[in-house]
Design a protein around this nucleic acid. Sequence first.
RNA 1: GCCGGAUUGGUGGAAUUGGCAGACACGGCGCACUCAAAAUGCGCUGCCGAAAGGUGUGCGGGUUCGAGUCCCGCAUCCGGCACCA
Length: 771
Amino acid sequence: LARYWRGQGYDVLHPIGWDSFGLPAENAAIKRGVDPREWTYANIAQQKASFRIYAPSFDWSRVLHTSDPEYYKWNQWIFLKMYEKGLAYRKASWVNWDPVDQTVLANEQVLADGTSERSGAMVVKKKLTQWYFRITDYADRLLEDLDQLEGKWPTKVLNMQRNWIGRSRGAEVEFEIEGRAEKVPVFTTRPDTLHGATFMVVAPDSDLAAELAAGASPEVRLQFKTYLDATQKQSEIERQNTDREKTGVFLDHFAVNPVNGERIPVWASDYVLADYGHGAIMAVPAHDQRDLDFALKFELPVRVVVNVLDEDGSPLPDPAESGIATAGEGVLINSAELDGLSKTDAIARAIEVLEERDTGRAATTYRLRDWLISRQRYWGTPIPILHAEDGSMRTVPESELPVTLPDAAGLDLKPKGSSPLGAATEWVNVTDPETGETLTRDADTMDTFVDSSWYYFRFLSSNDPTQAFDPAEAKTWAPVDQYVGGVEHAILHLLYSRFITKVMFDLGYIDFEEPFLDMLNQGMVLLDGAKMSKSKGNLVEFASELKEHGADALRVTLAFAGPPEDDIDWADVSVQGSAKFLARAWRIAHDIELAGSANADFAAGDPSLRRATHQLLADAPGLSESYKFNVVVARLMEQVNVTRKAIDSGCGVTDPAVRESAEAIAIILSLFAPYAAEDMWAMLGHEPTVALVEWPSADESLLVQEEVTMIVQVDGKVRDKVTVTPAITETDAEAQALAAPNAQRAIGDRQVVKVIVRAPKIVSIVTKPAS
RNA sequence: GCCGGAUUGGUGGAAUUGGCAGACACGGCGCACUCAAAAUGCGCUGCCGAAAGGUGUGCGGGUUCGAGUCCCGCAUCCGGCACCA
């Protein structure tokens, strides 16, 4: 893509860098007993050398490594900016703990099966004081701005982000609990069903459940304790199994339904989650399946308040009898002032009523949680915060950044639950030069997703020691026109990047709110259906093919195998086939060089070959811009084939059209096979480099065909083909079609009832049996 | 359960707005060159059929002169989310 846009005359910034902090590097270094820094930079050097063989057109002058102090200084700067704006804060809460890597994880790093994205270990819950970024403040903007990316980002990614943010609109309803001064808020998307709330359920691991249980009878206290223990022992997989039977404990308390004053029992059950909404719900068993399952199990009342009809317009059976909650739309009943209203109207009215009585209001909740950025590991960005003995905190002044990592020598880096930086006594202990006060540095490091959430800004000013990036450069280049990345980044990296971009916008450094205008999710290379990986040793095959056929052949193979979004199974491709194609292309330039044919006037060239060349020049840009590189390669193959034919059995190698074709091939081929294309370009007598040659535009006048094939259909079936001039009139087209022998045979003695003419492409004849 | 995507020959895949389905390759078969092989070049290659012809884009319907493409229903596979109130 970078090469294509350069060929169109654009300035292209195609940067490269290493996101080099983080657990995988640190764990590998610990395993080998070496310094993570040495290990990381040795690997970068090796990878860099390997990259260059493949001739990506990177701008190496802007190369960056996120583990360089020159880079992570600006992570700390961003942290300070966030802290100033109240977007970075510290709080104690239940966090995801990876028992193998011995660190906390962000919600986004816990996979659906409850294991760690990094170590694969089952994640456990632990209560810790940690740093967070307030991404939830941006939830609405992160959600709504996705609409701007519609059609530019893959639908899948947009949907994944929408899902992840998970906005629900509804109402917050306050329930009084007997014997408790403060009211308890619950969130519901169905305030219309408030009259059908027959009990309340709180999450067993919530503070409220503990409080209510504490005020209950000794038996209830014991039951609750047993239940809570059982809940906390469950694995994430067990907990997420939605088929399992409902369990719960009555908490010996009653709440009051604010709309009808009804006394309803309060239960604790693990189907209510402590960290979503308010950790408590109003249960409407008639219209919610989970509540119904619970009500039937514990013999709680079920009251229908929405008259839901089936397709035929007859009422659905009573949920209490059928066991199936009626969650659909319908007219409200048994609901006082809401009776007779539709769902939408009833929701609006219910909110009005709640607001009038000051017992509730319209509300929105999100699935998205604040971003936990503390990590108890060495190989990351130190958090620029100092802690005083009295528990207060102060920031490291911007002028003293970066806070560099202490030397790893002498530190025990093994995961142990607290940051290894804490043991670097000389680093941790600081004396305030003004007050003489003893301060300790925050010993945690930042999640590496902080590093990767703004690197596209740093590439603008990689070598600038005075600022994170130059806003003037951002005005020139940013936002990113084309982002290429795997779909594995759909949520984590891309959501964080969008968030940081919006923060930068709010801070006034940039004038746009979305970082990546266009996105391509490239597929993976598989071998027999499995990911190719170093650990499986099957990259060896790749290396040997590189040695045998060269980088160009591998590049062409990757481009030609299919659309870039799709996975490629290496078992299905032929590197040898690509090498063969390259040799055929190369030989055309070679033959021209051997023939010593001078640079001639293309206009004098063979018309049919010229037409093919210009058709290619006309089509290649559109195909490239829609990422159809496999088709561009196919078209190059066709062009090589017709040119070969022209040389061997057509106009001959000295015809100017052959040179014109060869030049077009070299220019377009340079996207995929830069080495071969450069060689061809030289053989054709040109100076380097073909990579900087602007693409010639197609001559439209050459694309006009003198003859085209017109299809003749009879009753929807192709029966004949007629060669006609493209300018043929409808009348002539119809006459010729009707006269075509195979069409006549197909018509036979049937009667022609209709003729549709789309000259010069097709004539469709409709017949019926002769009467 | 909810949301999204996919399904085309033996294989990877192609097919502007509905207009010749299978471009281009891989593989296979045949031929030329060669003592021979490799390499290279040329030809054939969706399926059924000797041919004429028929048939064919996951399945069943529909719209249309005409559907891989549009509409309805279904199946299978892949991905995301999920006791989210």
